[in-house]
């Protein structure tokens, strides 16, 4: 049995474990809220976690290219980029998958002497690097927005003094 097919078999448990550990990064009462509030407009953070972590795992299983990973990574990383936590806390959810794999598929993985698992760990590491890129991208966006807002807040003065210049793109 290949690692992929094994992980596919255990998919439900793995994804549930991953989500569970990710929610545990939040204070206990917040974790319960994120898990139990069903409406996606009342609970956008929970919605992002629940609807994207499964597909994100699938993308890893398929060793999908960056373009296929980002639509599921971005919603989570974007939220983490503006929450009140450090970068390492924000992105730690990616690494939690390693623990979950060992917990959920540990015995079976043992049989395969660890080689395929190391390969899969490599995918998780690449996901972490990608998450880091995206995280920085969102932070940069925040700073761009800050600058733009400051300019907008005095736009009349800038226009009256002919001091406006936009990005030609």
């Amino acid at each position: 049995m290949t690692l992929e097919s094994l992980l596919l078999e255990k998919r439900a448990d793995i994804v549930r474990g991953w989500i569970d550990r990710t929610l545990a990064l939040f204070p206990a009462s917040t974790g319960v809220f994120l898990r139990t509030t069903e409406d996606r407009f009342d609970n956008p953070v929970g919605e992002a976690i629940f609807s994207h972590m499964g597909p994100l795992f699938d993308a890893l299983l398929e060793n999908a290219p960056r373009e296929a990973v980002e639509p599921h990574l971005d919603p989570i990383v974007q939220i983490r980029s503006i929450q009140d936590c450090s970068a390492s806390e924000a992105l730690s959810f990616v690494f939690l998958l390693k623990d979950v794999l060992r917990q959920e598929a540990g015995d079976a993985l043992h049989d395969s002497r660890g080689e395929p698992l190391r390969e899969f760990d490599g995918r998780i590491d690449r996901l972490a690097l990608l998450a880091f890129d995206r995280f920085i991208g969102f932070k940069q966006k925040v700073y761009e927005i800050r600058i733009k807002e400051i300019k907008n807040s005095v736009s009349t003065l800038l226009k009256m003094s002919n001091l406006t210049c936009d990005d030609p793109k």
Partner: peptide, 17 residues
Amino acid sequence: CADKCHFFIGGGDPKNM
């Protein structure tokens, strides 16, 4: 009221309930 504040919903800090 606990989960009705946008700061709690977006940020997850219980003291914003």
